[in-house]
Amino acid sequence: MKKYFEVSTKTIVAIGLGAAIFMLLFMFVKVPSPVPETSFQTAYGLSALFATLFGPIAGGLIAFIGHALSDAIQYGSPWWSWVIASGVAGFIFGFAYKNTKVDEGEFKGKDILRFNIIQVIGNVIAWLIVAPLLDIIIYAEPVNLVFTQGAIAALMNSISAGVIGTLLLLAYAATRTKKGSLTKK
């Protein structure tokens, strides 16, 4: 049976390649939102998909590594508080791993709801609690500011993970149909 914290070679490879896609999306594939100067990060949809397919460790590390390396390339140094928050969100998304049977081709009403509840919880914890607290502890940022930023991030990232993640999982489940039941002609 599936275990949450088992790390096989496949998990490691999924982390490595998942983080590479995460970086690419994080830096180049943002969907601009109607609110000026903000955008939806498609990368969080990706970490939600990989977390659901490979578990919390993969989800967490993909976002952590991907975010840290993208920051390093763009700014010269990772922004630790947000990098860690990304990782936490990815980790929590991974709790959908055991609860959905998407790799058997099942992803319907109830599964979609469950995935989205988990995903929203993850985003709220990461962006409304972890990121602001770390900002205060590490950088002594003003409390008001960090919680406002956190609330916006939680909202935006829930929408990206929700919309992109759900659509990706639906597409993935569709590729899985009929397998196993397929017999040779």
Binding site: V7, I12, V13, I15, G16, L17, A19, A20, I21, M23, L24, L61, I65, G66, L69
Partner: peptide, 18 residues
């Protein structure tokens, strides 16, 4: 080391994925 290797794989395959 497994996690460290995952990072190495990210560096190896990022150009391919790009």
């Amino acid at each position: 080391y497994k996690v460290a290797y995952a990072v190495s794989l990210t560096l190896r395959y990022f150009p391919d994925i790009q």
